[in-house]
Amino acid sequence: MHWILLRGLTREHGHWGPFAEQLRAAMPDDHVHLVDLPGTGIHYRDDSPGTIAGIRQKVLEQVGHIPRPFSIVALSMGGMVALDWAQHAEPGELQHLVLINTSSGFSPPWRRMRPGTWPRVLRLLARRELFHRERDILELTSNREVPLSLCKAWYSIQRQRPVSFYNAIRQLAAAARYKPQTRAPMADALLLASKGDRIVHWQCSAELEKRWCWTLKVHPDAGHDLPLDEPAWVIRQIREWLPGQ
């Protein structure tokens, strides 16, 4: 099986940290591919499209060398890209879909981004002092103690592959406007959410569960970056959900 991992707003492959290797260790017969959204990671010099559909099309250009069918683990805005992908996929293109702390136009704006978060996110994205910006992003997205080594690692990522303010705003606009089609793209998908998420309300995932009868698992206190806060829990939920695991 070939897993594609997609991150969220202004984040890239480096922000998965040890999670990707932990997933590989838990599923040694599978292959894990870290794919960057346009405007981030190895594509940080590219312009990000202003729609989720446009971002999805750019992602598809990166995965032509990967054998099908794909399975996807996607976080936050990456989940929107994955959902849009699933709704436009060719027969047999996608096998499994795991969406983590994502949202969609099916939920009201105050659940898609909690009240008070919009101005804080905009201030963070516009902040020029990179170390403190990355530290503050970690403190917003994680509910665990943030070690100095992690702040330095994320600071190093931004120094090497900086995301422009222009691309951050384009991604933010794409996420805010996104609304999926009404039809379910597959019979089941795994929805993982955190009750402690201070950015996206976990009920956004519950809305997808209710609408399409998908599988929902909710962590009681982890933050928005669930793979960072509770990687073992995430991997356990994936393995228990997969048939034959």
Rank of each mutant, 00 (worst) to 15 (best):
H43K: 11
D221G: 11
R112C: 00
L23N: 10
Y178S: 01
P119D: 05
R127M: 14
G116I: 06
T141F: 14
L99Q: 04
W85L: 08
G79W: 00
T182I: 12
G8V: 05
S48F: 01
E93G: 09
P67Y: 01
Y178C: 02
R120D: 02
R45K: 13
I100S: 07
D225N: 15
A176D: 15
Q160P: 01
G244S: 03
Q160V: 04
L97W: 04
E145A: 10
P243T: 08
W214Y: 06
L34T: 05
A176R: 12
H31K: 09
L37K: 00
A26H: 05
A20T: 14
A126L: 09
F19S: 09
T40R: 03
H88L: 05
L23Q: 09
L192W: 06
Y178W: 14
S71K: 09
M77Y: 00
L216M: 11
A222D: 02
I169A: 11
N167H: 04
R177S: 10
G64C: 13
L60E: 13
I55E: 02
L97I: 09
F131W: 07
H31C: 15
P147C: 10
F70S: 00
T102P: 01
D136W: 00
W16R: 03
A26L: 03
E139P: 00
V63T: 13
A193I: 03
P115Y: 12
R68S: 12
I52K: 02
A176H: 11
G8D: 04
H132K: 12
R56N: 11
L190G: 11
Y178Q: 02
P108M: 08
L125W: 12
Q22N: 08
W212T: 06
I238L: 12
P67F: 02
L83G: 03
D47H: 13
G196H: 10
E134L: 14
A74F: 09
A20H: 07
H65G: 11
A187F: 02
A20K: 08
S194G: 06
R114L: 13
H33K: 06
I42R: 14
S48P: 02
I235E: 06
Q22M: 15
C213E: 10
R198V: 05
L130V: 14
M27N: 02
I4G: 05
L37S: 05
D136E: 10
E129D: 11
I137N: 13
L216N: 10
D47E: 14
R112D: 01
G223S: 09
V146R: 10
S71H: 07
N167E: 03
L130P: 03
W212D: 05
V81P: 01
K210E: 07
G105R: 05
G223F: 04
H224F: 10
I100D: 06
A89Q: 15
K152P: 00
E207F: 03
R144T: 12
L9A: 12
G105M: 09
Q203G: 01
D197I: 03
G64I: 01
L23K: 05
L216I: 07
G244E: 09
H201L: 03
A89E: 13
E209N: 11
S205N: 08
L5M: 13
H2K: 02
D29T: 12
A187H: 12
S104M: 03
S76G: 11
H88S: 10
L148Y: 11
R68T: 12
